[in-house]
Write a protein that binds this DNA or RNA. Structure first.
Length: 575
DNA sequence: GCCGTTTTCGGCCCGACTGTTTTCAGTCG
């Protein structure tokens, strides 16, 4: 059963938004935001906690604990219902538009009764905002741009939400009598960064029990289709799940077919046709005799086509067929290859958990080493000081090697300023085991300035990793504009690694950028940028993205032994 | 609303950017 923390987080987040929109105390709104985040990142399921247990979660006091209990008991919170009655749901949608916050949303609602993104678009197109205070030409342009960005993501959902849903569905279906195999396929299996529908496959003799189990799951909100071969539902979270039940002998062919991609399948079918064969979701057949030649496993199907099994993340027709035919498929990275996380936070800055808690959790993952990289002083809101980071270093050295012999590296996440400068002078940076450096502001510099800025950061002898290099947020913010080939060349030349940030809303670098950077000989670090214990598990999305970028163990510095990693971290030009 | 080796009030994530109301409110990281 899924944890209920996410629902509670969403509810408290909504309440915070409603407070902000209705002009309530800004600190109160922030208190709810903080509590929402803390509950979302809390390792224990809140539905198993009493008031005292809840109040042990940071930023959760008596009042919020009682609201959580009220919600878990009744499914509702009176205070939230009261605010909901004052503000239509659509008004809250508006603040998802970048550059449009609670104040502007309220004005649109009160003055023009706009309560949805569609109504807002129509109003701007009808020039109905002209007389509204604070909505000049440029503001309207920015809002339209924001709406376009939102729409670009379309109906696709982030990969982690899709995976949670898929695992929930599979847990249900695999328990049904007669289930021989079950798995998700489609773009989720290929680990694309966003997912349209979730394709779930079951191998069984009879399909009806599985179709019935899917439509009667508690999380099913709507049945789109309910047939013998295929059933589609939509969950309460708005995710569409398509279930197909195959005869067990067709399992491999079905997985191959429904995993895609379309382009990859066109290639495999073309190979089949040339050999006088026909490939479908039921198997690989001899065209003339109709005899089935392979279907039970994917390996058999690929083998009969003269190909080795191709990892799903590569199945995009980006050269994997050719590489497979030549016997040159890369041995791509796996999650097991990762020996440590090199970008993580603690509650010394904006993380949720203490140094000790994060280290303990990392050790439980079996890491050989682990870097703590809290924010540096130039990100003013984090209030970092020399004293604080040095005190952390001292504590970290005490903990080093004490948790399952995991070694600790003391690092920091520096801020790359507009001219490529970073927080501390070289002599102070020399005290860190590694430095990640990332962009946190001035995202709209022109290409030349941005390129220069990133290259300068690479040239800093103490900067080892560029964190979330393009700084995009999926569905919210495009990446910065730079001459990436020049940046990648600078990384390769200076021995600076590029991060594959595993946060599901970042996945930055993305797959295409990785492919391009790799051709320059760049090294990579697949990091979670964890701000809580739970985030450490997001590594799988970073690994998936790295796989889509064809990365091997050798390309990724945090698969290396500590000795080799340390050698890499000592860049030339250091004192 | 939460929190306290400042402990029951008075702080709380600070500063920059943007557009526009032209002196500052709103938004963002």
């Amino acid at each position: 059963m899924a944890r209920r923390n996410e629902e509670v987080e969403a509810l408290l987040g909504e309440y915070a938004d409603l407070i902000a929109i209705t002009g309530g105390d800004a600190f109160k709104a922030r208190a709810y935001e903080k509590a929402a985040r803390a509950i979302g990142g809390h390792p224990a399921d809140v539905s198993g906690l009493d008031a005292d247990g809840l109040m042990e979660i940071p930023n959760v006091g008596r009042s919020i604990a009682e609201k959580v209990l009220e919600y878990l008991r009744t499914g509702k919170v009176a205070a939230v219902e009261e605010r909901r009655a004052r503000i239509p749901d659509g008004v809250r949608e508006l603040i998802a538009i970048p550059t449009l916050g609670p104040k502007k949303a309220l004005r649109l609602y009160e003055d023009l009764h706009i309560s949805s993104v569609d109504e807002l678009t129509a109003a701007i197109e009808a020039d109905a905002l002209a007389d509204l205070k604070g909505f000049g030409e440029k503001t309207q342009e920015n809002i339209l741009h924001g709406i376009r960005l939102l729409r670009q993501a379309g109906d696709r959902i982030p990969v982690h939400l899709a995976l949670d849903t898929a695992e929930e569905v599979l847990a249900e279906l695999s328990a049904v009598t007669g289930c021989e195999s079950s798995a998700y396929a489609g773009s989720l299996r290929r680990m694309r960064e966003t997912i349209g529908d979730i394709d779930v496959l079951v191998a069984a003799g009879r399909s009806a029990p599985f179709m019935d189990a899917l439509v009667s799951m508690p999380s099913t909100a709507e049945v789109i289709a309910h047939g013998e071969k295929k059933t589609s539902i939509r969950t309460h979270k708005g995710v569409q799940v398509d279930l197909r039940v195959l005869p067990p002998r067709s399992w491999g062919a079905g997985m191959q077919y429904f995993t895609g991609s379309k382009a990859h399948n066109i290639r495999t079918r073309t190979i089949a046709v040339r050999e006088g064969l026909k490939l479908s979701e039921y198997g690989l057949f001899d065209t003339r005799s109709g005899k089935s030649l392979a279907s039970r496993t994917e390996e058999e199907v690929y083998a009969r086509l003269g190909l080795p099994w191709i990892p799903p993340a590569l199945r995009e027709d980006r050269g994997e067929i050719e590489a497979a035919l030549r016997g040159e498929l890369p041995e791509i990275l796996t999650e097991r290859d990762i020996r440590g996380d090199l970008h993580t936070h603690t509650d010394l800055t904006d993380g949720l958990a203490s140094l000790e808690t994060m280290v303990e959790a990392a050790a439980r993952r079996g890491y050989a080493y682990y870097a703590v990289t809290d924010h540096a002083p130039n990100l003013y809101m984090q209030r970092m000081t020399d004293e604080k980071i040095l005190a952390q270093r001292e504590r970290l050295r005490e903990l080093d090697g004490t948790r399952r012999r995991m070694r600790l590296l003391h690092g920091t996440e520096l801020n790359i300023g507009p001219d490529g400068e970073v927080d501390w002078p070289g002599e102070f940076l020399a005290g860190f085991d590694l430095c990640v450096a990332s962009l946190h502001s001035h995202f709209d510099q022109d290409r030349r300035a941005m390129t220069r800025r990133l290259v300068r950061a690479c040239e800093n002898p103490y900067v080892n990793v560029i964190g979330h290099p393009t700084t995009r947020l999926i569905g919210k913010r495009p990446g910065v504009d730079a001459d990436w080939d020049e940046v990648f060349a600078a990384c390769a030349r200076t021995g600076t690694a590029l991060e594959v940030n595993a946060q599901p809303d970042r996945l930055d670098l993305r797959d295409e950028d990785i492919l391009r950077a790799r051709r320059h000989g760049v090294r990579f670090a697949v990091n979670t940028d964890a701000h809580s214990v739970l985030h450490l598990a997001h590594l799988r999305y970073g690994v998936g993205t790295a796989q889509r970028g064809w990365l091997t163990k050798d390309d990724v510095i945090n698969t290396w032994t500590l000795t080799r990693l340390r050698r890499f971290l000592r860049k030339s030009g250091r004192n």
